[in-house]
Design a protein around this nucleic acid. Structure first.
Length: 750
DNA sequence: CAGTGAGCGAGCTTCCGCTTGACTT
């Protein structure tokens, strides 16, 4: 597809460069003859990946890092190998042009791409920077008519970000190669993402469950009942003699009642005897409380909310969501899918409102268009929200799409239309029921319901819930029409046991949400962050849950102890503030990088383990130079209990009974790589140690009855039979062990 | 009893963020 080469009446020919080929195609149609529109296809130049990409004139540290830290952090830039042909094409087009418009996105990265284009293309014709936030004919023409200059300070801020990430990644990763395992990686984003998953697992390991009981009653009004007035309904015991009955939220993560809560914690016997004592009780309605209910629609999609909802409603992983969305974008069905903005253009609002009227009627249309303020703190808002494209939205049926593309389009379309509809309105009702037990105690039950009188946006779209067991927030539940003093009979009263549950593991969608809230990562990287921590073996998937490996415990342990500042959850947010100051001209890049890399107030004396809150701020360079202080054995060892230690070795995790501990045998056993850390109990570790290591039992030989085992040898795996031993093994057998409490778990929470 | 050899040295691993194909498992 070669661009048009016709000339304008004025005889000028203008080259417009945008980032995305799909965008180039659309804009070409709006600008007409005289304009050649081509894409850079993202960044065209970057720091070299490795020494092989660095030009020969660079040596030593510059070659290793791609940054000359001794000379004001001068970066070495090379044209990306996969962009060489595109750069050549742009150069050829520029040779035939009289004017160059750099129309990359209006954000930090886009400004940098524009600058790199200027540096590489070396234009001899006038250069303009043009920006726009929506792709309509009017917006594009206005942008061409009102170009501006390149914002060099914004470019500086991007370069600073890039250099920081390079130094962090290329200086800290080698520490992990030396101290933990080859091929590992650390980075501003991935290391914090991993830390979040590890910390959640630590909470799960430290968690102790609490058991509590309550009662559920099924109550009948005595009327026949219909849809708007059910004859029976369920209610839960909430108080006994005025004392509230304990619920899950009254307990701490250690299974104890929280300080200061005055509640009745029922055990099984207590709950059952109360149920029996209430068997023949006559109940009355003690109170009915009705409150108005109102709910506003959700904001239109941005990248993270699309990934969350596609996960909840369609079961898509983050990567799949982005791939399907990319196709929809390329084929002109939706606007750009990598965005942190929830803003709809005027065109889109008009289209959505027209569709609301047409599909649901004017009653569902608010008087004024709804606007959604940006909730994302470091949002750069270079794009619109994700929405159906065009000035008239196609209904899903009209698109002719099928399969995953249809389902994702439908989701986006519904969410966009719903975002311009009226609030849902209704009532929420709480009914309290009282009865006297045969032993004189007063029991109070409670039921709550919700009726929706006007569905508003819910006609089009209701958000999914992360927890499939949780009652959908927006679902209706009708209670009978009862008033205070009404008599009720209990059809059934049952005692129910409950146990508090540990915090749930992250899923792809919930981790991305967490990262966005902490301002870590960007729309174009959320899906790839997950890929990175999975590829490195820091995290693996069990169903949809993200489970950290033992390896990640060792890595996070090392980073927290020796690079605390770098894996602080606020590190990126603070960096963003500083970059904004650089972009505003209130701070300078080189001193900022010097402080980060070489430290500040550097005197003779050690850095404070990366926790630079004192007068002396340890620079990164200092932290990675003296590695003697990092005890590889210590950071990768975790006590399991009973003298057993889990270690993360070069070849993976294993358990050991170290000889320096009394009763230690020095015996080791591999731990499966996909073992969830919160499932490693002392009992399981003992079991592993009891088995000969590295062996896999295939079954007994039918002739001799001897066990045939597969072993890993020097020349690869081999099979052999187990010969009877003439001396006893120096290992205690499981039967010789004393029984242990089944609740014992490893206490390695640090 | 094969199934644990030791030591040396060279080369390699790695970041985040912006975009799509080209290319094999």
């Amino acid at each position: 597809m070669s661009p048009t080469t016709s000339e304008t009446a004025q005889g000028g020919r203008r080259l417009v460069i945008v980032e995305s080929p799909a965008k180039a195609k659309t804009i070409k149609g709006y600008l007409g003859p005289g304009y050649v529109v081509e894409a850079s296809v993202g960044h065209i130049r970057d720091l070299p990946n490795g020494a092989a990409e660095v030009p020969d004139k660079y040596t030593g540290e510059v070659r290793r890092l791609g940054v000359d830290v001794e000379h004001d952090f001068q970066p070495v830039y090379v044209v990306n190998s996969d962009k060489k042909s595109q750069v050549k094409k742009l150069k050829e087009l520029l040779a035939d042009s009289d004017e160059l418009f750099l129309a990359t996105d209006e954000d930090r990265e886009g400004e940098a791409i524009a600058w790199h284009l200027q540096e590489v293309l070396k234009p001899k014709v006038p250069v303009r920077r043009m920006v726009f936030h929506e792709i309509t004919k009017d917006a594009i023409r206005a942008a061409v008519a009102n170009p501006r200059e390149l914002n060099q300070r914004l470019v500086d801020a991007q370069e600073t970000r890039r250099i920081l990430d390079r130094l962090y990644g290329y200086e800290v990763s080698p520490v992990l190669w030396k101290k933990v395992m080859r091929g590992l990686s650390a980075g501003r984003v991935q290391s914090v993402a991993t830390r979040l998953v590890v910390e959640r697992e630590r909470e799960r390991i430290a968690f102790r469950s609490a058991e509590y009981w309550d009662l559920t009653g099924t109550f009948a009004t005595g009327r026949a009942g219909d849809v708007s007035d059910p004859g029976t309904f369920g209610a839960r015991l909430t108080a006994v003699d005025g004392l509230r009955v304990a619920q899950g939220r009254d307990f701490t993560s250690l299974g104890q009642l929280k300080d200061g809560v005055n509640v009745l914690q029922l055990d099984e016997a207590g709950a059952r005897s109360l149920a029996t004592a209430l068997a023949n009780t006559a109940f009355t309605v003690r109170s009915v409380e009705s409150k108005p209910y109102r709910r506003s629609p959700y904001a239109p999609f941005r990248t993270t909310t699309l990934q969350q909802e596609a996960s909840r409603k369609l079961g898509f992983g983050a990567k799949a969501t982005m791939q399907v969305a990319q196709k929809l974008y390329e084929n002109g069905y939706i606007t750009y899918m990598r965005t942190d903005s929830t803003v709809l253009s005027d065109t889109a609002v008009t289209a959505a409102r027209a569709q609301v009227t047409q599909l649901y009627g004017a009653d569902y249309l608010p008087d004024k268009p709804r606007t959604y303020a940006g909730k994302v703190k470091n949002a750069q808002e270079a794009h619109e929200a994700i929405r159906p494209s065009g000035d008239r939205f196609r209904t899903p049926a009209e698109t002719g799409l099928t399969g995953d593309q249809f389902r994702l389009y439908e989701l986006i379309w519904k969410r966009t239309v719903a975002s311009q509809m009226k609030d849902a309105i209704g009532n929420s009702v709480t009914v309290k029921i009282a009865g006297q037990a045969s032993d004189g105690r007063d029991a109070e039950f409670s039921a709550s319901g919700k009726t929706i009188t006007f569905h508003g946006f819910m006609k089009a779209y209701v958000e999914g819930a992360d927890d499939p067991n949780a009652e959908l927030d927006d679902r209706e539940r009708r209670l009978p029409q009862v008033t205070e003093g009404d008599r009720l009979s209990a059809e059934e009263i049952t005692a129910d046991g409950h146990a508090t549950k540990p915090p749930a593991r992250y899923t792809e969608a919930s981790l991305v949400k967490e990262l966005e809230e902490r301002e870590i990562g960007r729309p174009s990287t959320y899906a790839t962050i997950l890929g990175t921590i999975l590829d490195r073996g820091y995290v693996f998937k069990k169903g949809t849950a993200l489970v950290p490996s033992f390896l990640s415990f060792a890595v996070v342990n090392l980073l927290e102890k020796h690079f605390g500042r770098l894996v602080d959850y606020d590190f990126t947010a603070k960096m963003e503030d500083d970059l904004d100051r650089i972009a505003r001209g209130e701070a300078e890049a080189v001193p900022w990088l010097k402080r980060f890399y070489f430290g500040e107030g550097a005197q003779a004396g050690a850095a404070e383990a990366g926790n630079g809150d004192g007068d002396h701020l340890g620079g990164l360079k200092e932290l990675v130079t003296d590695l003697g202080a990092i005890d590889a054995r210590e950071i990768s060892s975790f006590p399991v209990g009973d003298g057993i230690v889990l270690r993360v070795g070069r070849y993976g995790p294993y358990v050991e009974r170290p000889t320096e501990i009394e009763g230690g045998t020095g015996r080791r056993a591999d731990v499966p790589d996909d073992m969830p850390p919160d499932e490693l109990t002392v009992e399981y570790a003992e079991e592993l140690l009891a088995k000969p290591s590295g062996e896999f039992e295939l079954g007994p030989d039918p002739e001799t009855g001897r066990m045939i085992v597969a072993k890993d040898g020097r020349y690869g795996p081999y099979v052999t039979e187990v010969l009877p031993r003439t001396f006893p093994r120096a290992v205690r057998t499981p039967s010789s062990r004393a029984p242990r409490p089944s609740s014992s778990r490893c206490p390695w929470t640090r």
